[in-house]
């Protein structure tokens, strides 16, 4: 197999897509399964350490994991030639199109989650961390919005992962 072999590159992009996705969803689940439920149990004087040191670092890998997952995923779908069929959920595609329907639903769910990360969670978390100025009321509203959206993404991650794995192992 030559280095210029197209198949080699699709395998590399798929691997990069999965590594990025684990970085993203791993941090999403860390926030929802570990950090958020533990925060109320942490003594008040220790909480700033989480918000000032752990949260910014975790959010960095979280949001860029999301960006690279989407980027590599779209490149992979294009290279494999099913990107348009997937966007249309396989509707109107030659039968059988089950794989396109499954990966398409997964792609749409993942794209909604990516949007939530970059355009709802991240801007609101910047207010919570104090890197963007906000009144105390705005900070409380931002904390609630970021938390709820993160929970929405946790909920969506379950069917999204089903679609990704189903499509990858259907044939």
């Amino acid at each position: 197999m030559e280095l210029s072999d197209f198949n080699w590159w699709t395998q590399f992009i798929r691997w990069a897509h999965i590594i990025s996705a684990i970085m993203w969803i791993g941090h999403l689940w860390y926030f929802n399964f570990t950090q958020t439920p533990t925060m109320p149990k942490i003594p008040a004087e220790l909480r700033p350490a989480v918000v000032r040191f752990i949260l910014p670092e975790a959010l960095f890998w979280f949001r860029w994991g999301a960006m690279f997952t989407l980027g590599f995923g779209l490149i992979l779908a294009y290279m494999n030639g099913y990107i348009l069929d997937a966007i249309k959920l396989g509707i109107g595609s030659p039968s059988p199109h089950t794989k396109a329907t499954a990966i398409g639903i997964g792609m749409w769910l993942g794209t909604i989650m990516w949007f939530n990360v970059w355009f709802i969670i991240w801007p609101n978390q910047q207010k919570v961390m104090g890197t963007v100025s906000a009144t105390p009321d705005e900070v409380n509203a931002a904390r609630r919005m970021a938390g709820l959206t993160s929970r929405v993404n946790t909920m969506l991650s379950i069917p999204m992962l089903y679609c990704m794995v189903f499509a990858g192992h259907y044939y």
Binding site: N32, I91, V152, T154, M155, S157, P159, Y162, C163
Partner: peptide, 30 residues
């Protein structure tokens, strides 16, 4: 909805219910 999402078990159960819905849609469109 907010009450459901504020509960971690509620969020996970909702995720599994959505997965069943998605699986039905995939097979319905197949």
């Amino acid at each position: 909805m907010e009450k459901l999402l504020n509960s971690l078990p509620g969020t996970i159960i909702a995720g599994f219910v959505l997965t069943v819905v998605v699986a039905v849609i995939i097979h319905a469109l197949a």
